Simulated scan of single mutants.
Amino acid sequence: MTAAARLTAHSLADLKPLRQALAEAAAQQAAREHERRERERRLQAERNLFATSVGAVRPLKGQDARLWHAPEPPEPLPVQRQLDEERVLRESISDEFDVTTLLDVDDQLSFRRTGVGLDVTRKLRSGAWSIQRQLDLHGLRTDEAREALGEFVRLAHRTGLRCVRIVHGKGLGSPGRTPVLKGRVQRWLVQKKEVLAFVQARPLDGGAGALVVLLQPGRRKN
């Protein structure tokens, strides 16, 4: 029972505060009722939010109402990617490729790709391009040397290098004292699209035991 309900009028003078108390009690009751209805309205609106947003929906007939999504495949392991790159390198340069018809007939058997002028090999031979990196293949087996050369050329081109040296050796320590890798290196380089030209190195750069290679222009990566 509210405080207003407990008030009792003993005279006409008592009616005014009684009416005032009753009015305040009614106003409080109305406010509480309004607040209750507002809470119910918000709750109902939250329950109907999805239906209001997407509209009416109906379950699919003859099918499971649940929709299953296949899980996304995991990212490939870096190890596998490296193995794949090595396989591509092995397949991209062959030992059976005939290079003799592509070499310039001179005492050094230089190479220049179609469209490359003789001035390019002359400049290479004279040292007009500074050697930026080198790869030494001494001590490597044939398959190791092939993969090392393929990766070296690819990375050199990717990082924007233009002129590199490949040291294949003069074959002084090989059976018959013949250069085992020299012909193979020439054959491999001709098959690499990144290679524009190559010549035998100058004596001070390795002479008959090395090649100076000019690469296609590439975009340097920081």
Score class of each variant (00 low, 15 high):
5 A>K: 10
6 R>L: 14
8 T>W: 06
10 H>K: 12
18 L>W: 01
20 Q>M: 05
22 L>E: 13
27 A>V: 07
32 R>P: 01
33 E>R: 09
33 E>Q: 11
34 H>R: 12
47 R>Y: 07
49 L>H: 06
58 R>A: 07
59 P>T: 11
60 L>N: 01
65 A>H: 11
67 L>F: 11
69 H>T: 11
70 A>Q: 10
74 P>F: 08
79 V>H: 03
90 R>H: 07
92 S>L: 08
93 I>F: 01
98 D>V: 10
103 L>E: 03
103 L>D: 06
106 D>W: 07
108 Q>P: 03
113 R>C: 04
116 V>R: 09
119 D>S: 12
123 K>L: 11
124 L>T: 07
126 S>A: 15
126 S>M: 13
130 S>M: 02
133 R>N: 09
142 T>L: 15
143 D>K: 01
144 E>P: 02
145 A>L: 06
150 G>V: 04
152 F>W: 02
153 V>L: 14
156 A>Y: 02
157 H>S: 15
161 L>Y: 14
161 L>C: 12
165 R>I: 05
177 R>E: 15
180 V>D: 07
185 V>W: 01
186 Q>W: 02
192 K>D: 12
192 K>E: 15
195 V>M: 09
201 A>Y: 02
206 G>W: 07
211 L>I: 07
211 L>H: 10
220 R>E: 12
